[in-house]
Design a binder for these strands. Sequence first.
DNA 1: CCAGTGATGGGACTTGGTCTCATCGACCCT
DNA 2: AGGGTCGATGAGACCAAGTCCCATCACTGG
Lengths: 189, 189
Amino acid sequence: MARWQPDAPERLAAAALDLFEEHGYENTTVIEIAERAGLTKSTFFRYFPDKREVLFGAGTVTGLLVEGIASAPSVADPLDAVADALDALGRTFFTADRREFSGRRQAVLNANTELREREALKRVDLTASMGEALNRRGVPSLTARVAAKLGTLVWEIAFDQWIDTNNSEDFGPLARQALAEVRAAAAVR
Amino acid sequence: MARWQPDAPERLAAAALDLFEEHGYENTTVIEIAERAGLTKSTFFRYFPDKREVLFGAGTVTGLLVEGIASAPSVADPLDAVADALDALGRTFFTADRREFSGRRQAVLNANTELREREALKRVDLTASMGEALNRRGVPSLTARVAAKLGTLVWEIAFDQWIDTNNSEDFGPLARQALAEVRAAAAVR
DNA sequence: CCAGTGATGGGACTTGGTCTCATCGACCCT
DNA sequence: AGGGTCGATGAGACCAAGTCCCATCACTGG
């Protein structure tokens, strides 16, 4: 087995996505993933704490969102700060060249409960982080939590649209529009 | 080992909670849980699909919430329907005699990532179910999703307060008050 | 008293995940 | 060129979660 080939984690993640699509997450073994990447089980668990995480490793979304919120214009309404952060996120992670990959990945996630579970935890933690970031900006705690929840909803909606669209719209505008609609829905009562 | 003692799943759940408190979730083995309950690993997995679920088995919360939403007065604003459902939930599950148990259970949950993960998934699915129930009542899809997210937030807030309170307030009023505050926070913008 | 049924026990087996140690490859230094 | 160091990898033992199959026991009804 050739050693010293670069990008071991990337190769593992790619192999994993392929195999999960071919045989399903549950019917794929960590050993199989490692072998397809030309590596071993040992190396897999060196880079990923568990089998699920191989689909989540890329990129620290939380940091970007928190920074985006922190650096938004200080006069902004909480949801505007969230919108700015989502824009930053879109520019970094949801670029046009990653759309196909994101769609494949999301299809695999949706097909398996274990993976959905991991995603749910990430989303909960991320929502909490967003709330805290807003709170650090002076937004009252409860308002911050509300804005964070709505922000997460905006993200979900915009992401689904970004994945689905056959015409390739950018994530940023989709998020802006979803935010406007969510804001309207939250106000009408 | 004496067979045919009743309430096997309840005994298993009680033993699990005790052991998780004593040694932590990760340091407790399914075999240990089963032994403390006077049973075996086989029987444990007959009643619970996995180790985490032993803390979630009691009661189908989703069904109650969905029914509560469906049977709320039809003129109600979406969040009012959610409030009615939370009331029903409180009367059934969050009764005074379960407060101590709920607190112990929640402490265990909060202490372990694997358990928080399971809880996060349940909450995501529950939020989705609430949204769909509202949608079936004629609430527009997006409004329903917003109301469901806010309803989940209300639940989280009220539940934390219900657990924490040294003076024993009922869950229902706590939820009503939390809902009023969330509603105000969502409106101010 | 006996057969049937349902809950339990027992144990083999697979896989995820941890841990420790050996090994290899590249790079550096002389 | 050659030896030493260091980081990345491989190998394999080991434990616990979860699955599966089958034996066994207790209770029931005839």
